[in-house]
């Protein structure tokens, strides 16, 4: 498994990764795997002990993970690491980061080239909306500087 860091937090490796259903039984679990259909609010009772939430993308077109990440950051104030894995594209790097994702498991095909991910993170100098990151506003409008 090759990890790529999107910028915010350093990626940590965890030996135990459990599903949401398993969390209640496993007091030792510090990392949980969220499927796209899982409601992040289910993690509320466990947030204090969780270091890592992994969002699984079954296909890159299914964008539920972006909303899950934002809910974790914005509603649940989760301050640990969020990681995306599964079918993801380098073209999604900045979207993931701006929704609060810190790292990705690089896909094992051409989409896993770290150079592409690196490049994509720097593709756009600005963005046209606020995100969960503390990005600097440009002037009095709502454009922000996108700093990788």
């Amino acid at each position: 498994m090759k990890l790529f860091e999107l910028g915010e937090r350093t990626a940590q490796v965890h030996d135990v990764l459990v599903t949401v259903a398993e969390l209640a039984e496993r007091d030792d679990a510090r990392a949980v795997l969220l499927e796209s259909a899982d409601d992040p609010a289910l993690l509320r009772p466990y947030l204090n002990r969780l270091d890592l939430v992994v969002l699984r993308f079954s296909i890159f077109r299914d964008g539920r993970g972006f909303t899950q990440a934002r809910e974790l950051r914005e509603y649940l104030r989760f301050s640990g690491e969020i990681r995306a894995e599964g079918h993801i594209l380098p073209d999604q790097a900045a979207f993931l980061r701006r929704c609060g994702v810190d790292s990705v498991v690089l896909p094992k095909n051409g989409n896993g080239d770290p150079g592409l991910w690196e490049k994509q993170l720097r593709q756009f100098p600005i963005a046209y909306q606020r995100s969960v990151l503390p990005e600097r506003a440009i002037g009095s409008g709502f454009r922000v500087e996108e700093a990788p």
Partner: peptide, 11 residues
């Protein structure tokens, strides 16, 4: 502007 490359709502 707000909807342009919106990080959450592009997929």
């Amino acid at each position: 502007q707000w909807s342009t490359l919106h990080p959450e709502f592009t997929f």
